[in-house]
Design a protein around this nucleic acid. Structure first.
Lengths: 177, 177
DNA sequence: CAGGCTCTGTACCGATCGGTACAGAGCCTG
DNA sequence: CAGGCTCTGTACCGATCGGTACAGAGCCTG
């Protein structure tokens, strides 16, 4: 809920009035749970996102015995999480905004973790390390780009097409071992 | 100058106080030139960006007799414009923010023009239309994604690597004709 | 059932927001 | 050099910003 408010309005645009009305919590309650104010609310949302991705995507990519299957699952989970391109990536939006500096370290860590988890899965599936790193970077970059352009062009289908291209490329690398 | 303020602070974050101090124009002057206020200032910035890209990138892609060369030039111009990944795309940032709805049509038109210009150049260079559209969409998406992840990871070199991947893929399509 | 602890609504704070009004400085034209 | 037009600085507007203070409702524990 809190996450959706930041997603829809951005950090600056999500005023306490908006947050209060959307969450149904008065200011008293908000400041009781988040003494640090808006910044702590956003930090809490980032905590949730990081935990979700760590559990549902990064850890399987790093640990699933079937590395190739975990890569396919990653694309499916990505498609579901971003509602096939109808939902933006809050961390990505923060990265392009004025709050980037406030959360610089966490934003950096999120994308690095994603990229490294994909690379680790590729390596475990037998792909050479240099190629794995290259493909992982391209994967994360393409997903973020698709979220920007799908939103800009109001064309959610673009997201699916991008995931399709990534899938083809990952499969080719896996088959080429 | 005005463009840089919006780039650094976002639309919501660029308050009149910030705009005034950064441009050296008092409120009186700002409202003399932009009676429509902040929204008109942002619209003016978008005008400038659109005109710049139309002249320096989209038109050459559509009209340059040497279509293949115009595609290579597009990547070089892109690298220069975004300062090799150290500068973000204001239109992309707007697309992920709360102002997206205010400028929806222009944001849409900007990305559509870019994609269609790349596709047109590819077709004129002899690439089949379906493949050209696919490659054009991937190109624009990858560039936007690279701007997000380069900013997030504070790794400008990522931008150059992404442009390199795009170049390889475009050259392959051109060679395959 | 008394005490205290968690939670909440309300009233309020100074600061800043985007925007307006307007006098006048400066310059350009007749 | 008079008139008017462009531009600018300043003072001010109501609204909203993020945040604080605090009384008290409600509940849980001894």
């Amino acid at each position: 809920m809190l996450a959706e408010v930041f997603r829809e309005h951005g950090f600056e645009g999500a005023s306490l009035t908006v947050i209060s009305s959307r969450t149904g919590l008065g200011k008293g309650s908000l400041y009781h749970f988040f003494p640090g104010g808006k910044a702590e609310m956003a930090a809490c949302v980032l905590d949730g996102i990081e935990a979700w991705f760590e559990t549902r995507m990064f850890r399987p990519l790093r640990e699933d015995p079937d590395a190739a299957a975990s890569l396919r699952a990653m694309l499916a989970v990505t498609d579901a999480y971003f509602r096939s391109g109808q939902r933006i990536c809050l961390v990505g939006a923060f990265a392009l905004g004025a709050v980037r500096d406030t959360f610089a370290q966490r934003i950096d860590a999120y994308f690095a973790a994603w990229r490294d988890a994909v690379a680790a899965a590729l390596v475990r599936a037998g792909v050479a390390e240099a190629l794995a790193l290259d493909l992982a970077e391209e994967t994360v970059t393409a997903i973020q780009g698709a979220l920007v352009t799908a939103s800009a062009l109001q064309d959610p289908a673009l997201f699916g097409r991008t995931l399709g291209r990534i899938a083809t490329r990952l499969e080719a690398a896996l088959a080429g071992c």
